[in-house]
Design a protein around this nucleic acid. Structure first.
Lengths: 202, 202, 202, 202
DNA sequence: AATGAATGAGAGTTCATTCAT
DNA sequence: TATGAATGAACTCTCATTCAT
C-alpha cells in the first residue's frame, strides 16, 4: 500500500521476498526472526514493515513467489504435444530446476506453508492442486496412448512424482554441489523403468 | 535429578516423549510451546522440566524415538535371505508402517531434526546413514544377483526410496484415512516397474 | 485461568487491578504502559500477564471494578422508602464518595471505557444504563409525589446529575485536598434549589 | 521552516488543526497516530511535519483553537449589562454551541490537555482560569444584585456550570442527533430553579 | 512428583520523526 | 509544498526456564 508501485519500491520488495525466503528456508518460519530478514537485505528491522504488513504476509509472498511460475510452466508442458515420456522428463526437469533457481522459496512453500492461516493458504492451495491435476492428466493421456501401464493409478502417480521431486529438491537446496542434471536423469529413469530388470527374452 | 528409574517415572517420560512428538509434529519445534506439550499429557508447564532438561532435549528424544527401532528393523531386513523384490517390499512396508505407528515422531525426525545443535545430531546422523547404507547394500546385492538393472546408481536409489517414503509418510500422517496398504503396494510397484509399459513382444 | 482461585492469586489480581487503575487514571489507557503497571505492584513486566491476558483485559477489569458496587449501591437507594430529596442526597453522596474510595478506577471507567472493543463493553454498558434508569425512576417517583416540578425531564435530569457528579469526581481525584462533604452538600443544594433566589413574598 | 504566512500555508495549517482535532477527539492523543491525521487531510504522513513540529505541538494547537474564541466570547458576556439570568443563559448557550461548531477541538481541550507538558499548558491554563474567573464574577454580581441566593459559593457555582456543560458537551459531540437548544434550555432551567417545586403559598 | 509464581530475554509490531529529493 | 524511504525507540506479548513449596 505504501509505494505507489514505484520502481524502487517494487525492486526492494523483491529483495525483501528473497531475503525472507532465504531466512525462512534456513531457520523455518517460527525459528526465523524479522531482524534476520532485515539484516539480510541491509535495512533495519522496523523498516521491513514498509514492505510487509506482517511476518505472516512475508511468508505468504515467499510461498507464492516459490511456486508461481513453476505452476505456469507446468501448464505449458501439459498442453504441449509431446510423448508421455517427454512430458515426464520436462516435468521433472522443470520441478528440480526450480529448486536451483528460486532456490529457497520453493522449499519454504513445501515446508512452511502449513503455518499460514487458512485464508492466506487458499490461493496457494489452488495453485498447488492445479499443478497436481495437470500432472494427473498427463498420466491419463499416457494411459490412453498406451505409453503408461493400465494398472497405474494416476492420482497416486502424480503425488509420487511430486513427492520424489520435493525430496530431491530438499537435498539439492541443502547441498549445492549436487549435480542437478544427474539427479534429473536418474529420477526420470526410475519413474519410467523402475529398478527391476525386465526379462525380455521370455 | 529425576526419580532415577522408578517405573512410574519411566512411564511418564514415555508419555512426555509422545506428547512432545505430537505437538512438534503439528506446530513444528519453534512453533510449539512447552505449555502445549504439558497440557497434552495432563500436567502443568513447569512440571515438564522434571522429565526434560530443556525443550531441545525433548526434541532430541522425540527424534531418537522416531527412528530408533525402524532403523533396527532395517538391519534385520538387510541381513535376511530374501529376494531383492521381497526386501524392497519389506523396506517400504516397514518405513510407511512406522509412520502409522510411531506416528508423529518420525515426521518430527524428518522435519525438525535440523534445528538440533550439531552435537545432539551426531547420534541421529549415525542412525540415519546406517539406514541408508543398509538400503544401498540391498541394491548392490540386487545388482549382483541380476535382479536390478546394472545402470541403477545404488546411492541414488536408496535416497530416492527414502525420499518417496517420507513424502508419502507426510501424507499418511496428515490424512489418517489414507489406505496404508494401498500406498505400500503402489509405491513398490512404481519402484519395481516404473510407469512405462514394456513392449515384451520385440 | 492460571491460578485455580488460590487465595494468593486472587489477592495479587486485586493488587494488579488497583495498580492498573492508578496508572490508567494518570496516563490514560494508550499513554500508559504495562511496565508502569507492573512496577507499581512490584513485579516485572512479563509477570503481569500471569494476571491479565492482555492490557485490554486489564482495562476491562478496572472499569468493572470501578462501577460495580456503586451501581449496586444505587439499586438499594432506588428501592428504599425515602423522600425524593433524601434519595437525591444519597445518590450524590454515593457517587462522589466512590471517587474517593475506588479512586482512580471510576475515573478510568468514565474516561477510557470507550477504548474497549464493543464486545468487552457490553457488560459495562448494561451496568451503566441500569444506573441511569434507576436514577430516572427516582425522578419519576419524585414527580408523582409532587416533590419534583412537573416540567422536569427525568431522562435529562438523570443525565445531568451523573454528568455533574463525574465532573466533580474528576476534580476530587485530581485534588485530594478537596473537601468531599462540602462538594456533596453544594451539589445537592444546586440540584435541589438552583442558584436563583425565589421571591416568597409575592 | 514554514512557508511563513503564505495564504495557502495558513489555510492548510487550519485544515491540519481541524484534522488533528477530529482524530484526537475520536482516539485520544496517545491512541491517535500522525498517519491518521495526515490521511484525514489527504496528505502523507511525513508531510504533516511541514505544519507541525511535533505531534505534541499539534495537540497544543488544537487545544488553543478549541477554547480561544469561546473564552473571548465569555469576556463579552461578563462585561455586558444584562440581568444575571440572561448572562447565565448566554454562558450556557455559548459553551454548548461551541461544542457543535468547533466540535471536536473543545472536547480535545477537555480530555487531552493534561498530556501536554507543563510549559505548553501555561497559556491554556491562563485562558481556562480567565474563563472561570469571569464566570465567578458573574455569580458575584448576581449575589450583589440579589438575584442569586446568598448561600451560593461562587467558586463552586462556576465550576459546577463548567462541569455540567462539559458533560453535556461530550454527549453532544458523541450523538449528533441531540437537540442542542433543548439541552441548553433544560440546563439553564436546572441551574436557575433546581429540580424541586417551591411551595409559594406558605 | 508436581505446581504456582515469577522472571528475563526476545519476538513482532507500531510510530513519531527525519531527510534527501 | 509534498513525498518516499528509512530509522530507532518503545511497547505488547510470549515463552523457556527456575525454584520454593
Amino acid at each position: 500500500m505504501p509505494g505507489t508501485g514505484t520502481q524502487k519500491y517494487e525492486q526492494q520488495r523483491q529483495t525483501a521476498i528473497r531475503a525472507a525466503a532465504s531466512v525462512f528456508a534456513q531457520k523455518g518460519f517460527h525459528g526465523a526472526c524479522t531482524k534476520d530478514i532485515a539484516e539480510q537485505m541491509g535495512i533495519k528491522q522496523g523498516s521491513l514493515y514498509y514492505y510487509f504488513k506482517s511476518k505472516e504476509e512475508a511468508l505468504s509472498e515467499v510461498c507464492l513467489y516459490g511456486i508461481q511460475d513453476y505452476v505456469e510452466h507446468m501448464a505449458s508442458i501439459a498442453d504441449s504435444e509431446q510423448s508421455f515420456e517427454a512430458k515426464l522428463i520436462a516435468t521433472v526437469t522443470s520441478h528440480l530446476s526450480s529448486y536451483r533457481e528460486r532456490n529457497e522459496a520453493l522449499k519454504v512453500y513445501n515446508d512452511e506453508r502449513l503455518y499460514l492461516p487458512k485464508i492466506r493458504r487458499r490461493r496457494l492451495k489452488k495453485l498447488g492442486s492445479d499443478y497436481r491435476q495437470r500432472l494427473e492428466s498427463i498420466f491419463e493421456k499416457g494411459k490412453e496412448s498406451g505409453a503408461v501401464r493400465q494398472s497405474v493409478d494416476c492420482h497416486f502417480a502424480a503425488q509420487a512424482v511430486i513427492g520424489m521431486c520435493n525430496a530431491w529438491g530438499d537435498l539439492i537446496v541443502r547441498d549445492s554441489d549436487l549435480d542437478l542434471f544427474m539427479v534429473i536423469q536418474k529420477c526420470t529413469d526410475l519413474l519410467i523403468n523402475g529398478f527391476i530388470k525386465k526379462d525380455l527374452t521370455r
